[in-house]
Each structure stands twice: as structure tokens, then as C-alpha cells.
């Protein structure tokens, strides 16, 4: 922030002139519309959902405004929900690791490409982010489903029986599709870090006698580590609450948190229970994001802080 003159006009020490007093209101006028919009349309719905999560639900009487903690005790202490939460975070963790292993090297490879290829490959990598998730997931259904390409391939190799081979409704299938959906986030995140890296540091290390792999490990990787870490955070948090892909590929058989919220709301119609699952998911998400970014910030403030 280099421009701070207007701000300092507002610091309160300036002489109380008419002009500086009217200037003090400018930021509030400017942010006012958006702030009101957000407080009403984001604050209210979340607050109402929080309240809803304490209401009572009965299959015959529906929702009643009697307050109860039973929704939360169900979510927090029932083995059924434990399984769902554990599965969700397991999928998130595996997806994140796969994205690191695939996305980070790919970003580096694209970064080292020559001119036209570099932007073409970047476009191919990032482009899918703009294509509807439903479309991309449909592609995986066609690939890994009962008579999909993968199955035909396996049959041709004699690895699958005549009944075919399907990854639908399996954790592996969900992870593969999730990785496909989210790996561009890793590439873009590492890419943003790479743009700040001076590649001649690699040459410097080579000139000092380091082997190419050592250069990668000791010089380049540490410099893009913040990108890897922030990409991981985005991917982990998104996977943990992702709906479309687990819903289409995992189906009812492989429930994750998001699909169970959907079912509580739109099939069972037990809104209070669905609300409490969402609140738990939200709190977990916020806690994970906050503590992780605090850790990353503390770890890298000295060497690689935003400068």
C-alpha cells in the first residue's frame, strides 16, 4: 500500500476541516451497497441455518421450533456419520496428494516449455476449470462406467471378465474424477509461484556443481513450495465439500458429507439434521483453512513472504 494519503486524512489527527470530514465518509459510501448485500444475503441465510440446526424434526409432524441438541449429538456421535466424515476427508487427502504429485511437476514442465507450446499447454490445463463440472464428470462416467472405454480396454487385455469392469460407485472412481476436476488448481497455484522464481538461481546452482535433480530438489522446489501448499489447501477444502462428482460417481452407495446433506434436505426432508451436518462441515472447513494458512504463513514469512 503506497497510497495512504487519503487514509491519513482520516486518521483523526488532521484539522477538522469540512473537506476532510466529508472525505471520511467516502469509503463507507463506496462499500455500503456491497456490505448491505452481503450482510443480508450471506449473513441472514447462514444465521437462519444455524438456528434451523437446533430445531426438532419429526417424520409425521415435520419441523417444529422446539430447540434441541439432538441433531448435533447425532452428527457428532453416530458411527454412521463418523464413517461419512472419515470417508470424505480420506478422499480429500488422497485427492490432494495425487494433485500435488501430478500438478506440481506438470506446472514446472509447462513453465520450461518454449513459447507457443507453453501457452497452449497452459490453456489446455487450465481450460477445463471453465467447463461445467457436470460435463467433466459425465466424461468419467463414460470412461470408467460398466461398458466404458476402460472396461473394454481391460476386457481386451483379458483382465476383466465378460461382465465388464466398472469403477462407478467406488472410492477409486471418485478420486480419479476429483483429481481431474481439481488438478488445474494445483497447476495454477504452482504456476503463480514459478512466475516469481528466478530460473537463473537454478543455473547458479548448476554452476556451483549441483546435479540437475539436486537443483530441482534444493533450489527450485523450496521456492515453489508456498504455491504447492496453497494449492493443496484449496484442493483439500474443495474436495471435502464437493458435491457433483461424488454424487454422480459415488452415488448413494458411497456417501460423502455433501451428498448426505443433499439427501437429508431433498429426500428425507429432515432439514434440521441436514442443517447441522452443514454447520459441522462449515466449521471443520473454516478451522482447517485457518490453522493451515496460519501455519504456512508462520513457516514462510521470513523467506518467501509476499513482497
Amino acid at each position: 500500500m503506497s497510497e495512504m494519503t487519503l487514509e491519513s486524512r482520516m486518521a483523526g489527527r488532521s484539522r477538522p476541516s469540512v473537506r476532510s470530514r466529508s472525505l471520511a465518509w467516502i469509503p463507507f459510501w463506496l462499500t455500503g451497497p456491497a456490505a448491505v448485500f452481503f450482510l443480508v444475503l450471506l449473513g441472514m441465510p447462514l444465521l437462519m441455518t444455524l438456528v434451523l440446526s437446533f430445531y426438532t424434526f419429526d417424520y409425521t409432524a415435520g419441523i417444529s421450533e422446539t430447540l434441541t441438541l439432538s441433531n448435533y449429538t447425532d452428527v457428532l456421535f453416530d458411527g454412521y456419520f463418523h464413517e461419512i466424515f472419515l470417508r470424505t476427508y480420506e478422499i480429500s487427502l488422497i485427492t490432494t496428494l495425487c494433485c500435488v504429485v501430478l500438478g506440481a511437476p506438470e506446472a514446472y514442465i509447462i513453465y520450461r516449455m518454449r513459447r507457443p507450446w507453453r501457452s497452449i499447454c497452459l490453456l489446455i490445463t487450465l481450460g477445463p476449470l471453465l467447463i461445467s463440472v457436470v460435463v467433466r464428470t459425465l466424461g468419467w462416467v463414460l470412461l470408467i462406467g460398466g461398458n466404458g472405454l476402460l472396461s473394454q480396454f481391460m476386457q481386451a487385455l483379458g483382465l476383466a471378465g465378460t461382465r465388464g469392469f466398472s469403477l462407478m460407485y467406488t472410492q477409486t472412481g471418485v478420486v480419479i474424477a476429483m483429481v481431474h476436476v481439481l488438478v488445474p488448481f494445483m497447476v495454477i497455484s504452482v504456476w503463480a509461484s514459478l512466475r516469481k522464481v528466478d530460473l537463473s538461481t537454478g543455473d547458479a546452482a548448476l554452476s556451483l556443481g549441483a546435479k540437475p535433480f539436486t537443483v530441482l530438489r534444493r533450489v527450485i522446489f523450496p521456492q515453489v513450495l508456498p504455491g504447492v501448499l496453497s494449492g493443496s489447501l484449496i484442493i483439500f477444502a474443495l474436495t471435502a465439500s464437493y458435491f457433483a462428482t461424488p454424487s454422480i460417481i459415488g452415488g448413494r452407495r458411497l456417501k460423502v458429507v455433501a451428498t448426505s446433506v443433499y439427501d437429508e434436505y431433498l429426500s428425507t426432508m429432515n432439514w434440521p439434521l441436514g442443517a447441522s451436518i452443514s454447520i459441522v462441515l462449515l466449521v471443520l472447513n473454516v478451522v482447517i483453512v485457518m490453522s493451515y494458512s496460519r501455519w504456512v504463513e508462520r513457516r514462510f514469512r521470513r523467506t518467501l513472504g509476499e513482497g
Binding site: M1, M4, L6, E7, M10, A24, I26, P27, F28, L30, T31, A34, A35, F38, L39, L42, P45, L46, M48, T49, A237, A240, S241, F243, V257, A258, V261, Y262, Y265, W271, G274, A275, S278, I279, L281, L282, N285, V286, V289
Partner: peptide, 27 residues
């Protein structure tokens, strides 16, 4: 401008990035 509530508003406007869409949907 640096004004009272600036950090809060910045966080508020960016918060939908951190709130799962499924949660926003039910809300």
C-alpha cells in the same frame, strides 16, 4: 482507504470462497 471495518469487509466479501457451496445452498 484505510478505514474502520476495512479488514472485516474484505473478509466478508471474500468469505464465499471459504464457505462450501453445499452449505450456501441449504442456507
Amino acid at each position: 482507504f484505510r478505514f474502520t471495518g476495512r479488514e472485516f469487509l474484505n473478509g466478508l466479501f471474500l468469505s464465499p470462497l471459504m464457505i462450501p457451496h453445499i452449505v450456501l445452498g441449504v442456507a
